[in-house]
Design a protein around this nucleic acid. Structure first.
Lengths: 244, 244, 244, 244
DNA sequence: AATGAATGAGTATTCATTCAT
DNA sequence: GATGAATGAATACTCATTCAT
């Protein structure tokens, strides 16, 4: 499975230097948009939308300002392209991983959080989500796009995990009406972590900083408390909580 | 106590039309800062810090650009004043409420989350925090101001609540090393909710929308599971979780 | 003679607190323009025309901004008034001093330079001249005024001194065509000194600073060389110079 | 030597229309800084530093506001560039001329004053110095720049000339303590002339106007009196003066 | 007369976008 | 295609001046 993932992720890097070696010029031409998008990703994540200057993007991509506008009508289109490019569905592969999971669901959930941090949360891609949350109001259409292309599949994936737990009798029943919030109970710590890391996290005193791995572990533990089916006597409080 | 708060909050609206009718000019002068702060709050939340032009703020408040600078030295000070007026300035009263709480700590925590939603989360003020998370990287001075004037007091307030629970034997012991993350376990849902509401929340399909009140209740339940001292037999999983 | 001067100068300070003591209010009212002019003099000299804010002038005079505009139509008029006020002819008295001088003319010239430094060069009034030289281009009409009210009488005074020296056989003959420049040879060091003191002089390293008294003494010596009638053998070079 | 200078100066005008006709754009790009500097010189001199708007400079140079900032980081740098182009940058060549002078020092001094008038005093460049004297107090950074880039080299150049005269036995000894003021005795007439020409000189009656060339000649003669070593008997007065 | 709250014209600088080469 | 020189719209902040009180 790990192999699956790795290869899938590596495909993110556009084709590259290896293949059939056509004229250098032509190859570069073909690669331009990708190089620009990569540069834009880096800078948008690092400095935000408004603070990123297109000239910097062009420079980082090794072309002139004018060239950038040859490929992208304007800064806004560039931004949209960056977002679209970088959330090109990894969900099929993630869903596939989930499908072949044979262990119990608690472990699956913990594994999912851990892996998410490795593959997304700790990478620049996390910055895209933070960026989207920041700029959603200014780019409603992009936000919609993100909603349907990322958030919805994400919710769906989480929901399948939770349902698996319920179906296999590992988790308590989750009322259909509660499922939506249960899903967010899993997603929120991830979304929060991405926001945090790229905002206050950047200027928090070390004593107040969040350790993402420990934070996620703790959240997982707390969640599983509420989710796991009682194997024995349970306090009334716990029973109440588990209906969530 | 609720009364205390309500009256305190209501006093935010400057006295106004009642007394001895001073000179019109004078009355306006007294009202100006409040009007400007209200306008600034609206626009900062709606458009972000950088995208809000001071002239717009002045216009919305019904005065000229110059007048705004009569009351606030610059845009940054205006923003800080908005933060102080709506957030930072309220911690004394919130701390005071906490001090006089006589019930048990679980209820205090639930009450706190509920009240927070009423007084902050559901109001435009929530947009300020979302704004700060969005722009923190671009305005480090503001971020640092916010961190010390809002985040730190907020963490402190939460920590006092948790400590109260521990001290009274209602909550499990929380290892000093864990306290930091425990505090964030309480704050994260609030911070997340504010981010969400002003980003994807604005374009989420109703079926996928978060119901803040229910979401917070659920989070409270989940948290209390992990925090409450066991009154009876407890599953091993729970024991593990409770060390968080 | 000194007495003459002193009393004349002291009259610069408007009447003041001593006389018939009418209602305080009335007295202040009468004094307002003078107080404003004094404040304006100070600030114009210290900071220049453009950099002086009328509000500061008002403040320094102890009145409100609005009051200033009650007495002076605008900033420009205020400036003109300051200049006019402060060059209110001391020339009659200075001419009078000159008339009663009984010593030799070399000494008169040296005395004049020394006294000028004491009474004008080292006082804020010097700043007015520097100010006028700076702003002449922006206030041509004022420059004309200054030309006729200050520069012309000044030239005239110097010329009378030189002529006295010639008439008494103390100085060489000065051809009418040379007189004009001879006058400037005396005035230039004074004008230069005023410019210098309020420009580079304010930021010159101590090692490069001009010591006004020594500088003027030196200039006087140099001038008298060229002016004095030869009492004995003189080098050919000196003869040539003395025609200036 | 004059040839040297003339050619050096003529090179100020960028090569230009001659060679292989590069792309129009490129040719303009090369010419831009010079055009902008010329425009800036004109306007700074005419209106002063603060009163000159960068947009006007751009307009006069026939480009847009933005273009100016392509070549000069900001207004201050533009001004500094003007100073360097027209004054500071010429000291090497002026020093070089001095080095190759073979005649006697009296003539060198006279030549220097004459040439200074031709190349600087009578040109708009003189306005820069007048400008600096006017605005030094308001722009300490510029003043300090001017002091180190122009005044100091200027003093140094004059001092070298005086020292040359002393070393060759043409001038009397100048005590180290007197050197500073001796230098200013040479510079002052020049500085004064520049101030004058751009202030009262603009509105003085023709009969009272200074004829710069004659004025400088006269000053030279006066100075040399004081400086030249006695070739024969000398009056006591002269001896005194020569210590200056 | 005196106040001081209110006004709004004026300006350096940035940066997305264009287009001649 | 690619370049990079040129553009000009956009914005925070100041301060002389006005005028209702």
């Amino acid at each position: 499975m790990a192999a699956t993932l790795v290869s899938a992720l590596s495909s993110r890097r556009k084709g590259g230097e290896d293949t059939s070696t056509p004229a250098k010029r032509a190859r570069r031409k073909e690669a331009r948009p990708g190089e620009l998008l990569a540069a834009a990703l880096t800078l948008f994540v690092e400095k935000g939308y408004a603070a990123t200057r297109v000239e910097e993007v062009a420079q980082l991509a090794g072309v002139s300002k004018g060239t950038l506008f040859l490929y992208f009508a304007n800064k806004e289109e560039l931004f949209k392209a960056v977002v679209r490019e970088n959330l090109a569905g990894h969900f099929p592969e993630w869903n596939a991983e989930f499908d072949v999971w044979s262990g119990n669901t608690s472990e699956l959930l913990q594994y999912a959080l851990r892996e998410w941090w490795e593959r997304v949360g700790s990478t620049p891609v996390a910055g895209i989500t933070k960026l989207m949350m920041s700029e959603a109001a200014n780019f409603p259409e992009l936000a919609s796009f993100y909603e349907s292309e990322v958030m919805a599949p994400g919710r769906s994936l989480v929901q399948r995990i939770l349902q698996r737990g319920v179906d296999r009798g590992e988790f308590r029943l989750i009322a259909p009406a509660d499922m939506r919030h249960a899903v967010y109970a899993v997603l929120a710590p991830m979304l929060f972590l991405m926001s945090w890391k790229h905002s206050f996290g950047a200027c928090a005193a070390p004593t107040e900083a969040i350790d993402p791995v420990r934070y996620l572990e703790q959240q997982a533990r707390i969640l599983l408390h509420g989710l796991c089916a009682p194997t024995a006597t349970t306090s009334p409080a716990m029973r109440a909580a588990s209906t969530a």
